[in-house]
Design a protein around this nucleic acid. Structure first.
Lengths: 226, 226
DNA sequence: CTGCGCCTGTGAAACGCGTCACACAGCGTC
DNA sequence: GACGCTGTGTGACGCGTTTCACAGGCGCAG
């Protein structure tokens, strides 16, 4: 797939005329990342916008001693790194490639020029940010009101919808998704996740095998969310 | 103060040429709210953008049985209600006037037209949303890593900076800021807030008297945040 | 094959915070 | 002035989660 083809699938640039799309593609650099390699770190100046071409990137806030909260998990066609470009502040979170792959890099100035000159891009970006806001707001809500079990359930349903692939008698999430990863997505410990998953396994709702998670009955999971 | 004067102070419309500003002012309606009166409710269709002229508005997510989390507290010059306009989904939170006052109301279509036709507005809005994102992301971080005491401390410092007025030997926040209000801003119970505040009172850091909070030494408070 | 590191499984103990149940003080209202 | 409402102060108790400590399994590097 050429960068242009990817950009069309990226909601940010979805309805751009072909001429603009060509211009944009010419400004992009492509950069390859290994699994575990950082893209940027909290405190860095914001110099570019990134679009995931292949692989996977997680955006996270670090805590003390290796703890972290994952704010977003991004796959092909999704973008990140726009906050620091928009308000001029340093990066507010870390971004790390969780699976090897390639990112398209759009330098700050080019991105801002597009924003100013192509209203559709700005409007698309606003819509994207809005949806992301809804998600984050719900995270805040859950942190205040829901117990770990509920938060995990919601996460599983969300993962099934956004990254699930049918197979193995259910929806498969993964590979490379450890209990520790799940823990940092809901703000809990690995042990709590374990106990929660095991209870679901006992009910025949999920199957969990070393980095791969099979949701056998998403509807019944969803039904637990009041 | 006329609406135009307020709009200039509103970062969203800050650098608009006078001609545009006049057009904008002509589209606005003004609406008066009593203390406690709802502006919109979760699930409503998004029909307008609001700018606080006088008074105060809180944006909150409701939980079960009267519990709530306050996502934002907005004073004169600040705006809200844009999310549902940008992505077309229903309102994701409640908005309630906490103090009587007047709001400027910009109907959905007029707002969207401005966005498309005046790139500066879109760019300003993006910057505003970015800053708001940083705050919400930090809320998520805190919910995962910080205990109640730390969250309260951070809130006090933030309130001092955004709504504090010097006086009474320190920075005054309030009036009309109960322990219950503080509780719903950090996702804790009123009782926890009480115990925390009292410990700070014992240390001579704050004074608290019926809906008014005096921070006697903001720097020492800030120093507690690692 | 052997070791070593990452991931998973499990349980006991500690702890923070929410829940509940009060007492009491200011303030507006009839 | 008596009442009720709303906000504050406080302690006992319980529950959900984290913490800690350890045991096993699988996969990969040497």
């Amino acid at each position: 797939m050429t960068p242009e083809e990817l950009l069309v699938r990226c909601p940010l640039f979805a309805d751009l005329p072909a001429s603009q799309l060509e211009k944009l593609a010419a400004l992009l650099r492509r950069r390859r990342y290994r699994a575990g390699e950082p893209v940027f770190r909290e405190g860095d100046p914001g110099t570019a916008l990134y679009v995931v071409e292949t692989g996977e990137v997680k955006v996270l806030l670090g805590g003390s001693e290796g703890k972290e909260v994952v704010l977003a998990l991004l796959g092909p066609g999704e973008f990140f790194g726009e906050l620091a470009l928009l308000d001029g502040e340093p990066r507010s979170a870390d971004a790390v490639a969780t699976a090897a792959g390639e990112l398209l890099v759009l330098p700050r100035e080019d991105f801002l020029r597009f924003l100013r000159e192509v209203p559709a891009v700005a409007v698309n970006l606003l819509a994207s940010l809005s949806r992301r806001f809804r998600r984050t707001d719900r995270l805040v809500h859950d942190a205040a009101f829901s117990d770990v079990r509920t938060r995990v359930t919601r996460l599983l349903v969300e993962l099934a919808e956004t990254r699930g692939k049918p197979g193995q008698g259910g929806v498969v999430i993964g590979p490379r998704l450890t209990q520790g990863d799940l823990a940092s997505m809901v703000g809990a410990t690995r042990e709590s996740i374990n106990k929660c998953l095991r209870s679901y396994t006992a009910q025949g709702l999920v199957r969990h095998e070393r980095g791969r998670l099979v949701l056998l009955n998403v509807d019944r999971l969803r039904a637990q969310l009041v």
